[in-house]
């Protein structure tokens, strides 16, 4: 006698609601990784989500968590306030690259440096998605956007900021890792990283940070498949994947 078992098991905290994201956008995958980590660690009922401004502003529609919407770039400050007010809660921010690495640069740097015991999920797709694909601080040199129509010029606008490297250099950071979700192998690593980030918060080790390299097929003017390939061919070479800081790994050595 054979009984059929379901292999896929979507966490309950992930609402059964179609997302507003474009075809092939990686936000949905990143949302799922967060949902899985919170569920596996049994944190769902104790977690407060701090949303940000950008395509993921509606994340509260997709994750069934107590949530607050923060002004553009200020999520780490809002999260600081929440964690100080409710130190027993799990607090995380979910931010894009325009939000975190441009208008919110001061907030993320100081939140990390203070070692606020929160987690930041940073989705880097190298453009301002929601506003129409403008140049972001993470836009690669040469990349065409609606505000760099001839391609980002290093002379005029500098080059793409590597956030995980910067964050890893700050004193209060317990864990900083860059991942991608373009292949099964990378998704599995990303799953572990997101889970670890929340585990470190549970352990009270300080600030944890996971950068997720992600596609924006619409604003890259690519098919989802071509955009997914670009992660491998252009983004990972400039934004190398891996662990940039891990306070526990250091202790083990």
């Amino acid at each position: 006698m054979t009984q059929e078992l379901r292999v896929t098991n979507y966490p309950q905290v992930l609402t059964d609601r179609p997302t507003h994201y474009c075809p092939g956008c990686h936000h949905g995958t990143a949302h799922r990784l967060v949902a899985e980590a919170l569920t596996d660690l049994g944190l769902v009922e104790n977690t407060i989500l701090v949303g940000s401004i950008g395509c993921s502003v509606f994340i509260y529609n997709y994750l069934s968590l107590d949530a607050i919407e923060s002004p553009h770039g200020r999520a780490p400050a809002v999260a600081t306030g929440i964690k100080r007010a409710r130190p027993d809660k799990i607090v995380f921010t979910y931010q894009g690259d325009g939000d975190l690495a441009s208008i919110g640069m001061a907030e993320i740097m100081h939140c990390a440096n203070r070692g606020e015991n929160i987690t930041t999920i940073f989705v880097n797709n190298t453009v301002y998605g929601m506003t129409g694909g403008q140049m972001a601080p993470t836009t690669l040199v040469g990349q065409k956007t609606t505000t760099s129509p001839s391609g980002r010029s290093q002379e005029d606008t500098g080059s793409a900021i590597r956030m995980t490297e910067i964050i890893a250099s700050l004193g209060g950071v317990a864990y900083a890792e860059r991942v991608a979700v373009n292949t099964i192998k990378n998704i599995k690593k990303a799953q572990k990283a997101v889970r670890k980030a929340f585990e470190y918060q549970v352990k009270g080790l300080g600030f944890s940070f996971v950068e997720v390299l992600a596609t924006c097929p619409t604003n890259w003017h690519m098919t989802p498949l071509a955009a997914n390939k670009r992660i491998e061919t252009e983004m990972i070479p400039y934004f190398p994947l891996g662990t940039y800081k891990d306070v526990l790994a250091k202790e083990e050595k």
Binding site: I48, A77, G81, I82, A85
Partner: peptide, 11 residues
């Protein structure tokens, strides 16, 4: 913005 966060917790 920290005030916004803390106060949103009812503190």
């Amino acid at each position: 913005n920290m005030l916004l966060g803390a106060a949103a917790c009812g503190i």
